[in-house]
């Protein structure tokens, strides 16, 4: 932060001579202090998870949800300033609603990411505003079926003119991450917040786009997401946290194309496994240390 005090960091829409927008970079700092968020896209769907930092013992466990539903098939999780995230969600819901109003069908995940990317980018352009202090992970499952237009009464042609082309796949799981600059990419696995480095390292080990038996199932993805949140959490430094997870599967999957919270039983199982795997790796470390000692 050598540039502090040079005057180029005092307002949005001011470039520094070397082409940086310091306000945006400060917003990224706000994100880096937030609880870790993770998104995993596998063949069968999308999983979102967040390390919800428990700020006070007076807060009711399980209340104050951090993952939000934007439309039936869309979920959002974010790291950073929670009020900014809430506003982001409000806007995303408005966009999804407006899309339905005009096109009479659900908004594709890619289009929501585009709209929200554009929205966040606009907050880097003006003196009168500050950028969003969040990085958001948007997950969705665009229907793979021929979905009717909202309020449609008949079927129309199934193929050919006015119908859909045969032999073409439609829909599927999608995952996007949007940063304070407005930058967004589609990902197989996304992580942001305090523990993002460790989380990304873990995500990279997963087979998220393989076709074979090795590729992750949705249920495995839930368990991996839980484990990664636990790995990214530093017990010695960080405050206590609650794990919050949601998932979206296709029509034939467990959520029937909807964004839903992961059922309690599965979440608890995933947490148990996550804790166990941490325990095991700790033991391994201990064993190693002991081995080292013996060698000495």
């Amino acid at each position: 932060m050598t540039s502090i005090g040079t005057g180029y960091d005092l307002g949005n829409s001011i470039f520094s001579p070397d082409g940086r927008n310091f306000q945006v970079e400060y917003a990224v700092k706000a994100v880096e202090n937030g609880g870790t968020s993770v998104g995993i896209r596998c063949k069968e769907g999308v999983v979102l998870a967040v390390e919800k930092v428990v700020a006070s013992k007076l807060l009711k466990p399980g209340a104050n949800k951090r993952i939000a539903t934007v439309d039936r098939h869309l979920g959002v999780v974010y790291s950073g300033m929670v009020p900014d995230g809430r506003h982001f969600v409000d806007r995303a819901r408005d966009e999804a609603r407006a899309w339905r109003d005009t096109f009479k069908s659900p908004i594709p995940t890619a289009d929501l990411a585009s709209r929200m990317g554009g929205y966040m980018q606009a907050y880097t352009l003006y003196q009168s505003v500050r950028p969003f202090g969040i990085t958001a992970i948007v997950g969705g499952f665009d229907s793979e079926l021929e979905s009717p237009v909202d309020g449609e009464v008949g079927q129309g042609p199934s193929v050919g003119a006015g119908g859909k082309a045969q032999d073409k796949d439609y829909g599927g799981p999608f995952l996007y991450m949007i940063e304070p600059s407005g930058l967004y990419w589609g990902y197989y696995g996304a992580a942001t917040g305090k523990g993002r480095q460790a989380a990304k390292a873990e995500l990279e080990k997963l087979d998220l786009n393989g076709d074979g038996a090795a590729s992750l199932t949705l249920e495995q993805a839930v368990k991996e997401a839980a484990r990664i949140i636990y790995v990214a959490h530093d017990d010695s430094k960080d405050k206590d946290f609650e794990l919050e997870m949601s998932w979206i599967s296709g029509t034939n999957g467990p959520t029937k194309g909807k964004h839903q919270e992961v059922p309690k039983a599965l979440r608890e199982e995933a947490e148990r496994l996550a804790k166990k795997s941490l325990q095991d790796s700790d033991d391994e470390d201990d064993d190693k240390k002991e081995d080292d000692k013996m060698e000495e």
Partner: peptide, 8 residues
């Protein structure tokens, strides 16, 4: 309605 509904 579904925004705030417990999906579980």
């Amino acid at each position: 309605e579904a925004y705030d509904q417990e999906p579980t």
